[in-house]
Deep mutational scan, measured.
Amino acid sequence: KKRTSIEVSVKGALESHFLKCPKPSAQEITNLADSLQLEKEVVRVWFCNRRQKEKR
């Protein structure tokens, strides 16, 4: 499966949402994916990866 490159503006939106809520619910992920026009899975994985980055 190909990697999804996320635009800078979208990254900013994801980042600001992450600061408010690092573990969004499935519903929040769906809403966020719809508003940013990304697949739910891409948003879910982004949050997962971002939480791991926070641990490092």
Rank of each mutant, 00 (worst) to 15 (best):
G12S: 15
T4Q: 13
R56A: 11
S5M: 15
K40S: 13
K20T: 06
L38Y: 00
K20P: 01
K53E: 12
Q37M: 09
R3H: 06
K55H: 09
Q37P: 03
L14A: 02
R3M: 14
E41I: 00
L19M: 14
K55G: 14
V8H: 11
K40R: 11
T4I: 12
V10Y: 08
P24L: 01
V45K: 12
P24D: 02
A13C: 07
P22R: 04
Q37K: 12
Q52R: 08
A33C: 03
K11F: 07
S35V: 13
A33D: 01
E15S: 00
L19R: 12
R44D: 09
F18C: 00
R51Y: 15
R51K: 03
G12Y: 15
C21H: 12
R50L: 02
H17M: 08
Q27L: 10
N31Y: 13
I6F: 06
E7N: 14
R51P: 03
K40N: 09
A13V: 15
S25T: 10
P24V: 02
L36A: 01
L14E: 00
C48T: 13
N31L: 13
K40G: 11
K23W: 10
P22V: 03
Q27S: 09
E41Q: 04
E28S: 04
L19V: 10
V45W: 08
S5D: 11
H17G: 03
S25R: 04
E28D: 06
K55P: 06
K11M: 13
R51Q: 08
K53V: 12
S35Q: 12
R51A: 09
R56V: 12
R3N: 11
N49P: 01
D34Y: 05
E28Y: 11
G12I: 14
S25K: 03
Q37D: 13
K20Q: 14
V10K: 12
R51D: 05
F18A: 02
V45M: 11
P24E: 01
K1I: 07
I29S: 02
G12Q: 09
G12M: 15
R50W: 01
S9V: 08
E41P: 00
S16Y: 13
R50V: 01
A26V: 09
L14V: 01
T30Y: 05
K1T: 11
K1M: 05
I29V: 07
S5I: 09
I6L: 12
W46G: 04
C21S: 14
R51F: 04
E39Q: 05
Q27A: 11
V42P: 03
T30V: 09
Q37W: 04
Q37Y: 05
K23Y: 11
T4S: 10
P24M: 01
V10I: 11
L14H: 00
E7F: 06
V42E: 14
A13Q: 09
S25D: 12
S9M: 05
